[in-house]
Amino acid sequence: MFLGIDIGSSSSKAVIINAQLKILGKAVFNTGAGTQGPEKAVGAAFREAGISGEKIKFSVVTGYGRMTYDKADKQITEITCHARGAAHMIPSARTVIDIGGQDAKVIRLDKDGKVENFVMNEKCAAGTGRFLEVMARILDCSIGNLSSLSENASEEIIISNTCTVFAESEVISQLSSGAKRENVAQGAHKAVAKRVAGLGSRIGLAPDVVMTGGVALNKGVVAALEKETGQKITVVENPQIIGAIGAALYAWETASKLS
């Protein structure tokens, strides 16, 4: 068995696969680096797979918290792992858009699914999950409900500030001058999409474009991204665990090379 762990800034994910690359266990915990999240995710994945730690031949950790996690055999960046995971799930993928809690990245893959080039957002929360969290808080709605809220939008609202702090006050003043919450929610999705589409156009979005990461669960963002980029975007099944799947695949590959 092979274990992949992805420790992000706001969530921890673990995936266990067997030598036939079948997923036996998977788990997501909504706390990330510096918390008990990674332990809990790994524990839950073990329980789902119905195995214990000794059965693991090799493990790989990825994500923002990979440097400080010392229980894995190897660490690999989230860029390489997301690419691997996405290409495994959707072999025709040539572009991967991953929006996580504190960063957004666009990765170009070659025909073998290997990383050709990538861009990440500048150190700024614009275009990331954090931006959406801030917006959800102002709108007094859970992050999970932001998408359904935006479905009832009736009018286009533009959030022009890219800086999250500025955008926050911009939205507050829009709300206080009567803007509808639904419209603001949609505006927030569009703001993220604009930003990420901008990143993408720097290296070019070659089809098929695949989206991974927790924000891919938000239909509003995906729709806005399709509109911004003019491309069809395929959301991978279980987008949150794609990085961990990639890590598990590398664990399997490394172990096969070693033996």
Binding site: T80, V115, E116, K123
Partner: peptide, 18 residues
């Protein structure tokens, strides 16, 4: 940001290795 720098450099290394 050192962490961001490190991730990018490591990703570069992984690309070069590949």
């Amino acid at each position: 940001s050192l962490a961001q720098y490190e991730t990018r450099i490591q990703a570069l290394m992984e690309m070069m290795e590949q």
